[in-house]
Design a protein around this nucleic acid. Sequence first.
RNA 1: GGCUCGUUGGUCAAGCGGUCAAGACGCUGCCCUCUCACGGCAGAAUCAGCGGUUCGAUUCCGCUACGAGCUGCCA
Length: 487
Amino acid sequence: MDKLRTRFAPSPTGRMHVGNLRTALYAYLITKHENGDFILRIEDTDQERYVEGAVDIIYRTMEKTGLIHDEGPDKDKGYGPYVQSDRQKSGIYLEYAKKLIEKGEAYYCFCDKERLATLNRVEGGKEINVYDKHCLSLSKEEVEANLAKGMPYVIRQNNPNTGTTTFHDEIYGDITVDNSELDDMILIKSDGFPTYNFANVVDDHLMKITHVVRGNEYLSSSPKYNRLYEAFGWEVPVYVHCPLITDENHTKLSKRCGHSSYEDLIDQGFLTEAVVNFVALLGWSPENNQEIMSLDELIANFDYRHMSKSPAVFDYTKLKWMNGEYLKAMDEDKFYEMALPYLKEVITKDYDLKKISNMVKTRIEIFPDIKDHIDFFESVPEYSIEMYTHKKMKTDAQISLTVLKELLPVLKDFDAASYNNDALYQLLVDFAQTHELKNGTVLWPIRTALSGKQMTPCGATEILEVLGKDESLARIEAAIAKLESES
RNA sequence: GGCUCGUUGGUCAAGCGGUCAAGACGCUGCCCUCUCACGGCAGAAUCAGCGGUUCGAUUCCGCUACGAGCUGCCA
């Protein structure tokens, strides 16, 4: 059997949509599972939609996500060029289109916009336009004359309007349509560029693509592609159409929702690995039901026969959970390195950031979450003394005031050199015991006094340690003053 | 409007004629605990509807409903 070859063929129109990313990923996984070749082809046949810099985004995204292509514009293995506008320059599309014309499978069309507009009709609020094969009846001489005059033209596929066409998709099975549904789509545009519909067939064949992996939106035009393959006498590739990814409202993921592209997600603080992992599970699941998988594990486990047919909702909440799992599994140093910019954003004082980084590691899902966890280290926020009331800790503002006042001298006398978590914890627990108090009755007021927050990423004694003796005492004194004046 | 595809808890999903219908996220409760989180345990929640076929349908067929995609000189 020939080596399996797939391609990812994006259009350079902007950021990498997560639907495209997933298509690329599936193509990559299908290929690499079988040790095949993964080809990158740039489909820039639409001059209007071309966006400067978009090709770089494609390269960068592929690189970062680890979807490394074996062939592409930068790695020609003999099937190049891999950019359609470059291929177009050599005239291959026109050349192949002419072959079709000779076989009677395509024809020149000189209809202008005005005539085409007369063909428009509105059905169910939608404007539809089915070409009437007007130019098919042109004689060879008329065509030659028009061409000689330099009349603008397109080349259309000549589809029959009787009979049926059937094609096979690995996911959706056999699909049959009436040929009367197949309109004479344009193969070559009047600017000389091929349409996607034509270029993808020609290129996939020339590049010996064995498995065509693409979005479900191409399912309904596939019969027309099949007719093209057959007209050329080419072997039809294996089709794998991927289900759609939708937003919470079950409609196509759009820019409006703010997380429609890979870059959006990265900007929001997600890890590439988590995004790739998550997206892989949108429309597929492994037999062993494993959820957290590296790219290599995905390759090993991937079986496109287990892909689902129905669209999947992009669940932002689950992505966040998964990102959190990756964060928890990350080694401390790497986490610290990545968290550092976020830590420095809120903390300017000379605290042990590595320690704070570790505190936060199991409590966040994405890096921007860090801020709300640690802002109190910088300064105590405004808070209500009601916060000192906690039933389970058997404390309220009154008790807290008493405890803090008694504790202040004890902490003052405590050796600054042993101002660390373990020693302080021992000190406070002993204090609680000698005063016949619950541990919480002592620790809760301190934590509140130090942080002004209902919850913190660590306990009271750890905060003492990080803040240091001077700052800690100052905060406790401030808390005492606050309690005295407000209660 | 036409054509095509789809429909298992709120979400991702196993399932492929006989199951008490997996698992995960989220949610709720409990445990752990110097708060919160992590971790552990438990729980609520699903086969769109109606007809067939069958001894037996979530699984097969049909219809209906709903959703999506296509219907571009966009991909």
